[in-house]
Every structure is written in structure tokens, then in C-alpha cells.
């Protein structure tokens, strides 16, 4: 950057045209990685159990879910032991929840920085979402161990492809809710009270501990399939079964996520100019 610095010419202008600002985000990728690195380091530096926490959280939740929900939402056990089913859903859910939480608070958390330094603001929620990926990778490896334990049929290529697809869908869903909430939370602090409620609502309306097919044919199913996270959860599960992907459901879910993500980017870009005035 410095060798071209002498030629850097930029113009500070009123904001009137809308742009996503991808070129500028790319320019600041270094900062993005530093934020992710910092948050991962800080999170585990003083944790006695270290990276185990990333796995412990979904494991403990899985135990609880298995004990409680197994009865009510039994899925075809011959394909899937319930603990594996729950673990599979939970790690996606935790990635989503930590991403939404982190990005919603990212601007408020860095308000002193927003008051003093210019950089594309979207780096902050994006980095917050990416921080969760680290935990996800660890627990994903743990899930493979679990698959071996339950002696599930393993098709490496299918698992890899569908896992990547489900991860992309999950990231899109996280972005969609995370960006909207981060911008709104910076302006209206009420959203810090709304956030836990929204997450809880989404948790129960997402097929994390139940299978969406339970509701197939019921009128509520038409609503459930538009849940932005439902697609990611479904694809992630299908990776470990012989079943086929319900593309209609996945595209409905991805559609919502995409619309919300675009809305999120739009709201964020519209509001970001005034983040510096907020703190």
C-alpha cells in the first residue's frame, strides 16, 4: 500500500449513491484477519480448558437434548442416532448464534474506534462472524469422531461437498440477521434487549433438535421452510444419510436469507456514515 501511497487520491464526499464497497473491504482484508485472530486469541488465552470449550458446549447441549427431546421428536433411529442428529444441528446453530451475537454487538463494542479511525465498518461484523468459524471447525472435527463412534456410513466426497454447502448457507443466514442487527443495535440500543429474544425465537423455529419433515403437510411447514437457517441444517444432515436433499425447502430458506442479507447490507451501508456520531 505504501508504495502507491503518494498517488492515493481520494475524495471525501457526501454519501448519496449506494455501493456495497467490496473493493474497499478487500483492501482492508488484513484488518479483518487481525480482528479474527485477536478475538480467537483473547477468547482462549486464559481458558484453562482451552480449545476444548468449543467442543464442550455442543457436547453438553447434545446430552441435555438427547435426554429430553429424544422422546418427543424421534427421527428414524435406524439412520441416525439422536445424539448425532442433535450435535449436527447444534454446531450449525452455535455458529449462527455466536455470529449473530458477535456482529450485533461488534459496533457498540468498538465504538471508541469508530469515533476515531476510518476503515470500512463492515469489517467488524464480518470479523465477528468469522470468529465463530474457528469453533465450528473444531466441533466439526469432533462430529466426525462421533460419526465413527456411531459407525455411520461415511461417503467422504458427499460429506465434504454438502458440509461446505451447508456452511455457506449458514454463513449467509448469519450475515442476513447479523448485519441488520449490528446496524440497528448501533443506533437503537433497544436491540440489545431484542437480540436474546430473537435468538430464542429462531432457535425454536429452526429444525435444530427436530426434523423439519415432522411438519411436512401441515400449514406451519410453509412458514418453517422460509426460516433462513433451515436450509443449512437440512443440508448438513443429509450429508450423513442416504437421503436426498429437499431442494425446494433449501431454496425457500436460502431465498429468505439472501433477501435479508441484501437488506442487511443496504441498511448497514445507509447507516454506517453516522456510526461515528453514536458513541
Amino acid at each position: 500500500m505504501s508504495n502507491q501511497a503518494a498517488n492515493v487520491q481520494f475524495e471525501i464526499k457526501p454519501k448519496n449513491s449506494f455501493s456495497v464497497g467490496i473493493a474497499e473491504l478487500w483492501q482492508y482484508r488484513n484488518l479483518f484477519f487481525h480482528f479474527v485472530q485477536r478475538d480467537v486469541k483473547v477468547r482462549y488465552r486464559h481458558a484453562a480448558l482451552g480449545f476444548l470449550w468449543a467442543i464442550l458446549q455442543p457436547v453438553l447441549l447434545t446430552v441435555v437434548f438427547t435426554l429430553i427431546f429424544k422422546r418427543g421428536f424421534s427421527i428414524s433411529d435406524e439412520v441416525f442416532p439422536y445424539p448425532f442428529f442433535a450435535f449436527n444441528g447444534l454446531i450449525i446453530w452455535l455458529l449462527f448464534a455466536s455470529g449473530v451475537n458477535g456482529s450485533a454487538n461488534s459496533l457498540v463494542r468498538h465504538s471508541t474506534m469508530l469515533n476515531k479511525i476510518y476503515f470500512p465498518r463492515m469489517v467488524l461484523p464480518l470479523a465477528a462472524i468469522a470468529t465463530g468459524l474457528f469453533d465450528f471447525m473444531l466441533s466439526w472435527v469432533a462430529m466426525i469422531a462421533l460419526a465413527f463412534y456411531f459407525e455411520l456410513p461415511i461417503e467422504p466426497l458427499k460429506i465434504l461437498l454438502l458440509s461446505v454447502l451447508s456452511l455457506l448457507l449458514a454463513i449467509l443466514a448469519t450475515l442476513s440477521i447479523g448485519l441488520v442487527l449490528s446496524a440497528l443495535n448501533a443506533k437503537y440500543r433497544d436491540f440489545q434487549y431484542v437480540l436474546p429474544f430473537v435468538l430464542q425465537l429462531l432457535f425454536f423455529s429452526s429444525p435444530v433438535f427436530y426434523d423439519h419433515r415432522h411438519f411436512e403437510g401441515e400449514s406451519i411447514y410453509n412458514l418453517l421452510k422460509f426460516n433462513p437457517l433451515a436450509g443449512a441444517l437440512h443440508v448438513s444432515r443429509t450429508a450423513w444419510t442416504t437421503g436426498l436433499i429437499d431442494w425446494e425447502m433449501v431454496s425457500c430458506s436460502a431465498f429468505t436469507a439472501l433477501i435479508l442479507a441484501m437488506l442487511g447490507v443496504y441498511i448497514f451501508r445507509k447507516m454506517e456514515a453516522y456510526f461515528g456520531d453514536l458513541a
Partner: peptide, 18 residues
């Protein structure tokens, strides 16, 4: 405005260099 924390409503500033 110069440090790009708040945008101007009108007008512009041209900057050459970092």
C-alpha cells in the same frame, strides 16, 4: 470529516497521499 468518521452533507475534500 477529514478523518472520514462523519461524512459531509455537501461539498468535497480531495486528498492526495495517505
Amino acid at each position: 470529516i477529514l478523518s472520514r468518521i462523519s461524512p459531509p452533507t455537501k461539498g468535497s475534500i480531495k486528498v492526495r497521499g495517505r
